[in-house]
Design a protein around this nucleic acid. Structure first.
Lengths: 227, 227
DNA sequence: TTCATACTTCGATCATAACCGAAGCATGAA
DNA sequence: TTCATGCTTCGGTTATGATCGAAGTATGAA
């Protein structure tokens, strides 16, 4: 009986893992750029672009152009509610995401979260800097203290350059593997870039894994002692 | 690469047109055999068998063997509510199936939503009961008030029986055609069953339409006056 | 201007899964 | 027993769509 609305269309849109990842990420309510969503879903920009346009045409996402960026967000509350309902059902049935793969342990240890360090190392760095009062938390906001400015300066980071960009210097980001906060923002990006420059670590091609050299690992642990 | 429930699995299951047809058909609340569902979806028995086993493994359907037949039904209310929510979103976005037949107006007027009354009449009943303080809303939760207990008692509903079940007595459900709340839960089911028993209405075979007799319609309007 | 970034479009590859024919199993009837 | 029905399993075909490389467009920065 072909009566009523077409749920298969919406189902198939949510049914693709890459799109489901994007939608889940957007459940935070924050609008994200196409590249951020691509990184989150673990796909290239081309593929993400195709997915995002499908989701927008179907009315699940809205798009806002801002300069070179395109920010995507869930179209409205109803979409969020539907996703929430699906998560509820999935959780009840025990359908958790499969997370078994050879790359997985490396991903949990250290990976890029769009442009900054995440995973165990990302959280460790953040905690260590907070413990030594280099970073101060005020609610959602995070500030670099005066001592912190000295610290990152010694590391060889040019703060004035970072402050020139319109991005906030410090932002918090929630880690899916650790379920704790790590450092994002211009400083988060700056620190990771500095680790690359210092030769402590490098990106694994075609993956989000950040691989530390043994020397780099030693220096990193020295630099960010556990609290 | 995210933590949390796997909505993609459920989405992809609902996302196949053949399976979506089967699930929509089962929204009538009646258990149907594998062959009936195959015919409904327009596929062969082999293909249907494969679909049905996937849906059962995922926990969306339950199966009951009876002789040579296998009867399938939606696993529980939550599945029905999710499907209804998806229909709501699809309808709002204009994603209707190609063939919207003459039965459509009847569907909007009164239909079963898995096991309770939906459509114009479902919303009217809910609104009327809220307006007279028979039902009280507290955020997402809905309660039957003391006056409400008296009211449904007069209608001939045995509350103790309903309360024995583990299902919540009252739950809200979003209506895709009216875009408003109607009553689900054990009481929602109980009320619809009572309308059948009283001869006010009956199900149209092979459809979700609930057809009221002219006498039944009169009594229903009397019983649930518009606010 | 030139260069870099952010994103899209095109084209081709490739993996998944929907599908059905044929055969097999289980139940019930004759 | 034999036959019919309801459903499942197996095997092979086919269509869909997810993916990425390469190239193109648009915006902003130098």
């Amino acid at each position: 009986m072909k009566e009523g609305p077409d749920i298969a269309l919406i189902g198939s849109l949510i049914g693709d893992p890459a799109r489901a990842n994007m939608l889940t990420t957007l459940m935070t309510g924050k609008a994200l750029t196409a590249s951020e969503l691509a990184a989150e879903a673990g796909i290239t920009a081309q593929t993400a672009s195709s997915h995002l346009s499908k989701l927008e045409v179907a009315g699940l996402l809205t798009q806002r152009k801002q300069g070179r960026h395109r920010y995507f967000a869930l179209a409205d509350d109803e979409v969020g509610n539907l996703l929430e309902a699906m998560m509820g059902l999935a959780a009840k049935r025990g359908h958790m995401r499969a997370r078994t793969g050879p790359r997985d342990p490396a991903l949990r240890k250290a990976r890029v979260c769009y442009n900054h360090l995440a995973g165990d190392y990302g959280v460790r760095m953040f905690d260590s800097m907070v413990a030594r009062d280099f970073l101060a938390e005020e609610g959602e906001e995070i500030f670099l203290t005066e001592e912190g400015e000295g610290f990152v300066g010694e590391l060889g980071i040019a703060l004035p350059d970072l402050e020139k960009s319109r991005r906030p210097l410090c932002r918090s980001c929630l880690d899916w593997s650790e379920r704790r906060t790590h450092l994002a923002g211009a400083l988060g990006t700056g620190l990771l870039d500095r680790f690359y420059d210092l030769g402590w670590a490098h990106r694994i091609e075609g993956s989000r894994v950040v691989s530390f050299t043994s020397e780099g690992e030693r220096r990193f642990r020295e630099c960010f002692p556990e609290a």
